[in-house]
Amino acid sequence: MTQLSEAPPRTRAQISERTLRKDPWWRTPAVVAALLTIWVLYATVRVFTGHWYWVPAYHYLTPFYSPCVSGECVPGSSSLGQWIPALPPVIPYAFVSLPFVLGFRLSCYYYRGAYYKAFWRAPTACAVREPHASYSGETRLPLILHNLHRFFFYVVVLISILNTWDMVQAFRGKDGSFGIGLGSLIMLVNVVLLWGYTLSCHSCRHITGGRLKNFSSHPVRYWIWTKISRLNQRHMQLAWTTLGTLMLTDLYIMLVASGAFSDPRIFN
């Protein structure tokens, strides 16, 4: 009687190519890496510049310097008052808000996926072999700290309220009464989009209603959840758009504050 030989152990297909994708899979992560690098460099230079952040005539304050609470802030730019004396130049004027804004963006579910691909190559693109020997994801420090995203969200809601106040102040003319300039409108668009980005956050979606098991028992929260969910579908677009509007708003205020450009006034 013939004895059957044992089947060989099954293994994965041994394919040496890192990927067999033929589409330009490297393009999106390359563009993301380039844009994020440009933005971070610009923002870093600007927050440490220490001037051209306030236009006293029209009450324009760049979001990169809000709130300005230290002794060196120019008069009028400190909407929350000046709590502390002048700081060394290595500390940005908006040290109160910047760590939370940065933490909110760094722990954002969209940005995480984007920068893991663009910078850490884990993976660079889908179905493209990553170069790392091992992988533990977000199970250990420091990446496990991403679970604190909702706390950054709570603080950023307060910062968005402050940005809204700054924007309202920007609708004033030289005499202090109501006025509209191009800068006011740019700040308005920026604030509206910042609210869109903040409220479309996945943590916001969870807090407002996502954590419920029974929507039918909580009709108001369910209604809010459906609206946030719809906004959440645009979270990636809002993440990029707000980076653009933040940079544009700051650049515009810098140009007006430095005298390189005069603000066109629509009313008063």
């Binding site: 579910y109 995480r112 996926g113 893991y116 691909k117 884990a122 993976p123 889908c126 179905a127 992988y135 533990s136 994801g137 977000e138 199970t139 990446l143 496990i144």
Partner: peptide
């Protein structure tokens, strides 16, 4: 192993 997911959406 939910913590392993790094939400790259593949």
């Amino acid at each position: 192993g939910l913590g392993y997911c790094n939400i790259t959406k593949c």
